[in-house]
Design a protein around this nucleic acid. Sequence first.
DNA 1: CCTACCGATCGGTAGG
DNA 2: CCTACCGATCGGTAGG
Lengths: 217, 217
Amino acid sequence: MVGQVRDQVLHEATRLLARHGFEGTSLQAVADAVGVKKPSVLYHFKSKEDLRQAVLDSLLSRWSEVVPRLLMASTRTGLAKFEAVIGELVGFFADDPDRARILVRELLDRPEQMQEILQRQVRPWVEVVAEYIREGQRTGTVRPDVDPEPYVLHVVSMALFSLATTPAASPLFEGGGRGPVERTVGELVRLAKAALFVDGYVRHQDDKRARQGGAGR
Amino acid sequence: MVGQVRDQVLHEATRLLARHGFEGTSLQAVADAVGVKKPSVLYHFKSKEDLRQAVLDSLLSRWSEVVPRLLMASTRTGLAKFEAVIGELVGFFADDPDRARILVRELLDRPEQMQEILQRQVRPWVEVVAEYIREGQRTGTVRPDVDPEPYVLHVVSMALFSLATTPAASPLFEGGGRGPVERTVGELVRLAKAALFVDGYVRHQDDKRARQGGAGR
DNA sequence: CCTACCGATCGGTAGG
DNA sequence: CCTACCGATCGGTAGG
C-alpha cells in the first residue's frame, strides 16, 4: 500500500512528540518505534522540522472535521447548542489526549508561529461561537457581562489543559463514585454553563425537559 | 559574595527552561547566558537533572511564600475572600509568566514525578480553598452543585494556561480599550465568580459596596 | 571556576 | 528503504 510506512511514521511521531516534546524526540526513536532505519524516516519527511509540521497539520485537519458539526449546531438553540459545542470540544481531546499535549507543547515552543496558525485555523470558529453568545445576550438567555472571545478561550483552555495533564492532576483529589476524569469533565461543563447563562435559565430548561419526559442527556 | 554565580545560573536556567524546555536547553546555553564555562555550571549543580530540580524547587518555594496570604484570607468572608485568593493566584503567574511555563512543561514531561510534588505542595491549599467553598455552600452563598476540588483546579488551569501562553493566544481576538491580557484576566475572574456564587449574591454585594461609597476595587 | 578531553548521540547526506 | 558515514553538539569528568 502506498504511504503505509509514512502513516506509521506520522502516528508514532505524534505519540512520541506528545510525550517527550520535539527536542526530546530523536529521529532514531521514531524510526525504532516504526521498525525502520533512520534514513527511511528522512525519505518520507525531508527534515525533523518537516515531520513536526506534518504532525501538527494532521492534528489540525482532524479538528477541521469537527468544526462543521459545531456549525450545524446553529439549528439548535440555547442550552442544546451549548451542550453540542462543548461536547465536540471535550470529545476531541478526550478521544486522544495526545492532541491536547501536542498543542500545549507547540504553544510553548513556538509561540510566534502558532499565533499565525491559530489565527487561520481557530479564530474563525471562535468568532462563530462568540456570535452565538452575542445572540444569546440579545435574546436575554446569556449573561450580559460575558466577554465572548475570552470566555470561549478559557473554556477551551480548561478542556485542553485538563486532558493534557491527565492523569498528573488526578491525585489532587479523591473521587466519589466517579473517576477523577469524569468528575473533572463534569465540573468543567457545570462551570462553563453557570458562568454563561443568566440566572434561572438552566433550571428552567431542566424543568421543561423533565416535564417532556427527560430527553436531555 | 557566596553563591552569586549559583544564583545567576538558577536565574538563567529558569528563563531558558521556560522558553525552550529541558531537552531544548543545553548546559552550554546556560553557561553562555551566565558568562561562565560549562564545567562551572556542573560545579554548582552536579547534573543537568539536578539543575532542573533546583529550578522547580525554587519556584515552589516562591509559591510557599504566597500561601500564608491565602490562609490569612480566612478572616474575610464570601466575595472578599474569593477576590483575595484569585488575586494571589493570578498575581503569582502574572508577576513572572515563566513560572507558569515551567509548571506546564514539567507536568507534560514528568507526569509521575509531578504527581508526588503536587500532592505534597499543592493539595494542602487546594483542600483549604475547597473547605472555604464548602463553608459557603453551608451558609448558602455558594452554589450547591459546585464540586470544590475540580472547581479550584479548573480556575488554576485557566490562570496557569492563559499566562503561560501569553502572548500566543492574544491575536485570537481584538481588544476593546483594554489590552488582551487585561481582557483575558477580567473574563477569567468574572467566569470563576459567576460559576461559584449563587444567583444574586454578587450583585447584592456590589450594591452594598456602592451604598457604602464604592470601596471595592 | 578553568582547560582539556571523553564516548555517545544528534540531524542529515551519499549512494545504491 | 538500506548501509555507511559526516561534522556538530550533547552531558559529564579529570585534574588543577
